[in-house]
Design a protein around this nucleic acid. Structure first.
Length: 259
DNA sequence: CAATCTAGCCATAGTAACTG
DNA sequence: CAGTTACTATGGCTAGATTG
């Protein structure tokens, strides 16, 4: 929830948001999602309405029905839930970007590493809230792209498409590497933050003692962070290229496969 | 008949009122 | 003023209705 909070805080505040963790009735039996009453009262129409959910992953739109009497997303919610493969415990952040239109960010309980990475990048970049939300989307997109590639692969004949499998494996290996990098970045970012806080504290308590040396140490740490960020950017670019290559291969395969 | 949707019921948490 | 109780709002579950 702390991670969700951090993501939430880095979204554009001019759009109202609400956070919802997935329970059994939202992702299995019944397939309906309750909105919090205060949010529904403030931002939802006073009548049943069709609501558009825009997946932050691929900008794909899903229509669902909002039932005002129960403050729930009902008809159509199941399609979104299945398409995004939502599980109990996953947390969704709904950002109201237009009347009856939400952008939806998925924070998966089982894959918090994805969000950790996004948070690490937020610490590093810090050049505006809009940019931050793009970073989160991009980071989650990359991880989801790897999963999507698996889904595609499951639909085709593995035996006759070894090359695609290999590409998929390479892609997953790359994702693993990037996740590991992100974990390290997060740790470094937190450490640097602690250092800055402790530096400020010491400065308050003991005046200007060793100020120069402490600043030097901080600069070294910051340089390390920047270096790691540049390395990560390179890996992300390479990962994107791999994803495009895999998509092309799958597309070719789909074109060649008779209906 | 199976999948999907809806509405009602129940449990729980929060709050207000009452009592000692 | 603090503790207890009762009421209300909210959220989750599930059975029944509807639709294809």
């Amino acid at each position: 929830m702390n991670r969700v909070k951090e993501v939430q805080e880095n979204l554009d505040p001019k759009f109202p948001i609400f956070v919802k963790s997935m329970n059994r009735s939202a992702v299995t039996v019944g397939f309906m999602l309750k909105l919090s009453r205060p949010f529904a009262d403030l931002h939802m129409p006073g009548h049943d309405a069709s609501v558009v959910l825009v997946d932050a992953f691929d900008e794909e739109e899903y229509r669902t029905k909002f039932l005002v009497t129960k403050s729930v997303f009902s008809g159509g919610w199941k399609a979104f839930s299945i398409a995004r493969r939502l599980l109990e415990g996953d947390v969704l952040i709904f950002q109201l970007i237009k009347p009856c239109e939400f952008k939806v960010y998925v924070v998966r309980e089982s894959e918090l590493g994805e969000v950790d990475g996004a948070v690490a990048l937020i610490h590093l970049k810090g050049d505006g809230r809009q940019r931050n939300s793009e970073i989160i989307t991009e980071t989650i997109n990359i991880a989801n792209a790897a999963k999507a590639s698996n889904l595609l692969a499951s639909r085709i004949d593995f035996a006759s498409h070894i090359e695609i499998s290999k590409a998929s494996e390479q892609l997953q290996a790359s994702v693993g590497s990037v996740r590991a990098q992100m974990g390290r970045l997060d740790a470094l970012a937190l450490k640097a933050k602690d250092e800055v806080e402790s530096f400020k504290e010491r400065e308050r308590n003991s005046g200007q003692v060793h100020r120069g040396e402490q600043k030097k140490a901080l600069v070294v740490k910051l340089l390390k962070l920047i270096e790691a960020k540049v390395r990560l950017d390179g890996e992300i670019e390479s990962l994107k290229a791999n994803t495009s290559r895999l998509e092309l291969m799958c597309q070719k395969e789909a074109d060649n496969t008779p209906n």
